[in-house]
Amino acid sequence: MHEMSLAEGVLQVIEDYARKEGYRRVKTVTLEIGRLSGAEPEAMRFCFDAVVRGTLADGAALEIVETGGSGWCLACGKTVPLEARYDPCPDCGGYQVQATGGMEMRVKELEVE
């Protein structure tokens, strides 16, 4: 359930930028959540709605862009796509794969007024 803390993190980013950018209402929040980030998009939606209630993002739509995971396969010596951290290399079937991409949890953009 750390999605609750993550949702609070999103709200903090939104409020910080509200001061810098001078907006008063947020209509859409676009997040980028990597496949290997450990955050669950559905739980994120639930927590986001609860956390933004009564704030400048109350009722805002949440769009989540899921980015694919990738890893460096030591045996193949190249970057390969990775669905989960425990998956083998899709090319050689080995497990010497170090996750390199898809760990991001980012506020990408906001639609504001």
Binding site: L6, G9, V10, V13, Y17, R106, V107, E109, L110
Partner: peptide, 17 residues
């Protein structure tokens, strides 16, 4: 007219932590 606009943020959710 009400003018919605996009703000590019590109900031990590856990940046504060």
């Amino acid at each position: 007219m009400s003018q919605a606009r996009m703000v590019q943020i590109e900031q990590d959710i856990l940046s504060k932590n």
